[in-house]
Simulated scan of single mutants.
Amino acid sequence: MAFGVGLSIGTVNTVCATAADRSGKNPPGRRGAPPPTTWRTTLTFDSSGTARVGRIPRHGRVITDFADLGQRGAPMARVGHRALSAADLVATVCYSVLTEVLGKAPTGPSANPETAIAVTHPASYSEALVADLRTALDHVGLNEASLVAEPIAAAAWLAAERGPLTPGLALVYDLGGSGLNVTLLRVGMGAPTNPIVGMSLHSADFGGRAFGEAVAKQMRRGAGTAVVPRGLSDADSGELRSAHVRRSLALVYKCLRIADVTMADVDRILVVGGAARPPEVAQVLAKELARPVVVGPDPERTIADGAAIVARQAVLAQESGSHRHHSLTGLFRRVTRVAAL
């Protein structure tokens, strides 16, 4: 059974998804209740140096805000005699989560050949950052794990969910906790191996944290009145979020200009990311950009789901190639036997 595991390591949450030929099955080698699918992107280390993901202890040090390798002054950690870079911390999260999901270490002789792993990363990463992440994954034994750009994984989900897609352009609007990533890529039959058109753009001015700061600023403005409001109403919060998304359109138009296309050339908009759950996000994009908007049931899971699909497809392709090899070998043997007779 071909089984794919996809990992999306965000600043706030880590999401793991699986894709199999037969739904409702546990990962190969695992028994019992299904494992969790979402963790807080935090790391703690016990006295033996064993990592724990997703815990925030009352006492002791917890490591956070390391998932974005492109940020300035990315955090490092010292565990025993080891100095761990941000890429090492991300690789540690991958190893720990995979061990929990698969029910065993994802490396070594016990690794299942029918299971493939795909780890996503922002498309805005430089080649050097991708190489750092590759080295860190290899160091923890995840040599076979593939690296997939986040918008490409999202497009894989779109093709599986809505496919087969007609050839064209899709705009991936990834609104996460720490920022916004906008990427234009080709989808459908004939799409190149690297389907990204122009340049993937990132901005920390939008997203969950930025919106939280905007809400706090609005609350401080109201603090000067005679009655201090306890919180924003749903209407005020929705209006504030809509304005937040409208301001982000400048990044969308910049992405289009770099690719030398217009919004009329875009066939659809795919909205992903944990901060894209509120309905105002898709509503504003559909109204202002006048293009069809696609949002998954849980936008935070879309990238991980797509990565799992990519991993499963890799197993199927390998199996198909192996079957073709055996078929050709058998045919050659039969022809040789007949010729000998």
Rank of each mutant, 00 (worst) to 15 (best):
A2G: 05
G4V: 01
G6E: 07
G6C: 09
P27C: 04
R30E: 06
T38F: 04
T41F: 03
T42K: 00
F45W: 10
F45E: 02
F45H: 00
R52E: 09
P57W: 02
H59C: 06
F66N: 03
L69F: 09
R78Q: 14
H81P: 03
D88S: 05
V90L: 07
A91F: 03
S96A: 15
V97M: 02
T99Y: 00
P109C: 05
S110E: 15
P113K: 06
I117K: 00
I117Y: 00
T120S: 01
S126I: 05
S126R: 11
L129G: 04
D132M: 10
D138K: 12
H139W: 11
E144N: 12
L158I: 04
A159V: 07
T166Q: 15
G168M: 10
L169P: 00
A170C: 15
G176D: 02
G179C: 05
V182C: 07
L184F: 08
G188A: 07
G190P: 07
V197G: 00
D205T: 09
K217P: 00
M219F: 08
R221V: 11
V227M: 13
A235I: 12
D236P: 00
S237V: 03
G238C: 05
S242M: 06
R246L: 07
L249E: 05
L251H: 08
K254M: 10
R257K: 14
V261S: 06
M263Y: 03
I269W: 03
V271K: 06
V272Q: 03
R277Q: 14
R277I: 11
R277N: 06
A282I: 00
L289E: 00
R291L: 07
R291F: 02
P297G: 06
P297Y: 08
D298S: 12
G306S: 07
A311G: 05
A314P: 00
G321E: 13
G321N: 13
S322A: 15
S322G: 12
S327E: 14
T329P: 02
R333H: 13
V335R: 13
T336E: 15
A339H: 12
